[in-house]
């Protein structure tokens, strides 16, 4: 078994720079978006002006993010993307960057936006430390929540993709969501996922399914 973790695309290790010589700090792009956030929703904006709203997280998990979109009904392109974030510097910067990316040019279509990956955002930011990875996952999730909201409001129910969790290991009660979280936090091998979740420890029968999920989420987020 391979215990060595491959570097995650778009991340820059943990708290050191890529050459490990200096403590990590934000890239110039991250700093620019953190100190001059783009497209955030001003206090006085009216929710009724938007036709799709998304929300993810809560203060209990450290970050909360809400997004408001204006989608052109004819083309399903995102014409406006506004947001508010309770979170750390990386969370603010990656939301700001995502807002720029989905509205660039004519604006992404909802199909295109759904394909936006966390590491696309991180690459545009010039990298984030590995343990800040969840910050950029957060805006990706809020975006997809808003996309679903748009389809719901326009009665296109067949296009809604929900992410209900299902139990993978009935003994440890670990769900596919738990495995997804573990992979996002950098556990890319079965051992590391087991360390985080205890999945399959009393129930080795579920391990093939777990390995398949790890592969799936690695592919999904890290390409």
């Amino acid at each position: 078994m391979n215990h060595k973790q491959d570097p995650v695309a778009g991340t820059k290790g943990d708290v050191t720079s890529h050459d490990k010589a200096k403590s990590w700090f934000y890239s110039d792009v991250v700093k620019d978006h953190f100190f001059n956030p783009r497209n955030f929703l001003h206090e006085d904006a009216n929710e009724a002006d938007y036709n799709a709203i998304g929300k993810v997280g809560s203060p209990a998990c450290g970050d909360e993010l809400r997004v408001w979109m204006k989608v052109d009904p004819a083309t399903e392109q995102i014409k406006e993307f506004r947001w508010k974030t309770f979170g750390c510097g990386s969370a603010i910067a990656s939301t700001s960057m995502a807002s720029v990316m989905v509205t660039e040019g004519e604006g992404m279509t909802l199909d295109e936006a759904r394909k936006l990956k966390p590491q696309d955002i991180m690459e545009r930011l010039g990298g984030l430390p590995q343990r800040k990875f969840h910050c950029s996952v957060l805006c990706d999730k809020a975006l997809r929540d808003a996309i679903n909201d748009y389809y719901r409001r326009t009665d296109q129910f067949d296009k809604i993709i929900t992410e209900a969790s299902r139990i993978i290991d009935p003994v440890s009660k670990v769900t596919d969501k738990d495995i997804e979280e573990a992979v996002l936090e950098g556990a890319h091998t079965l051992e590391l996922v087991q360390q985080k979740t205890k999945v399959g420890i009393g129930n080795p029968g579920c391990l093939p399914a777990v390995e398949e999920l790890i592969r799936f989420y690695k592919e999904k987020y890290f390409g």
Binding site: D14, F34, F35, F86, G89, S90
Partner: peptide, 26 residues
């Protein structure tokens, strides 16, 4: 607001404070 974000804004103004909160710790 979240402490780490404020720490970083303060840092840019030359004020060095800390937070026992979230993101600064692994």
């Amino acid at each position: 607001i979240e402490g780490e974000a404020l720490i970083l804004y303060l840092d840019a103004s030359g004020v060095y404070a800390s937070t026992g909160s979230a993101c600064t710790s692994a």
